[in-house]
Design a protein around this nucleic acid. Structure first.
Lengths: 137, 137
DNA sequence: CGGAATCCAGATGGATACTG
DNA sequence: CAGTATCCATCTGGATTCCG
């Protein structure tokens, strides 16, 4: 059942003539890698949230970016959006089954990040000391 | 040993007064989420590669972006760069232990992407049909 | 071969103001 | 409350040229 190796090999091969050669994986990774998506996913992993609840939970996100982020997640089928036509309007967001299945992997990535962030920070410091005038970031 | 839940909760809390409130996880995720890093990591997961080998293996990457990508991965301690002072120069790249430990997660993400790319594509199509004039991407 | 340097277009994201 | 609209700064990444 552990077929990970075979699958991933296909990553670097064109899998369809007309499509992008990355088999669409980049679509998913750029979504996960954008500035706010993961934080939204992690927050929704704890339960249904309203728009303002999300904004208060995610420090620093602007109204505009929260809107864009949840819209993209909704378009990808990872998040479900429900509008209650009350006054004022009330909108809730929750993960779909697809979104929940991704959450598990996102949490592993988050844990890895937390576990190794010291290593990475140290490596960066070392690199910056050894290469005083680099422009990489 | 499964402490995933507790760890990730910390994601949304400021963990240090002076630092970014995301505990540095965004550093890792943006690295994984950028356009080329994952493809470089996956290729290096198969073994040591020279610069030109990487470029030939990764379809569409420019010289500049390959340089930037491997430099960032090196700075983060995920990739080791070795220069052989021959003429012409010969440079090899390989994953460090840290990089290898991330590879496993990256492969899971890649497998998830491949497994669900149809679902996502369908969801996007449905969304675009239901919202004919949206500007999201 | 393995880059570095420069230039430039497009994407991303923040601030602000306005709305049903 | 839950957005939309606009403007604008920054970042990302591609193309090209040059270099040891």
């Amino acid at each position: 059942m552990s077929q990970g190796h075979m699958e991933v090999t296909a990553l670097l091969e064109p899998c369809g003539k007309e499509e992008h050669p990355d088999c669409g994986i980049r679509d998913v990774l750029t979504r996960v890698g954008d500035k706010w998506s993961v934080l939204v996913i992690v927050e929704l992993a704890s339960g249904t949230r309203r728009f303002r609840e999300l904004q208060r939970a995610i420090d620093g996100i602007s109204q505009r970016m929260l809107t864009l982020t949840v819209r993209r997640l909704e378009r990808d089928g990872l998040v479900a959006r429900t509008v209650f036509p009350t006054v004022p309007a009330q909108v809730t967001y929750e993960l779909t089954d697809l979104g929940s299945s991704l959450t598990h992997l996102v949490k592993q990535l988050a844990d890895w990040s937390l576990a190794h962030r010291e290593d990475i920070a140290n490596s960066r410091t070392d690199y910056d000391v050894a290469n005083p005038d680099h422009t990489i970031h």
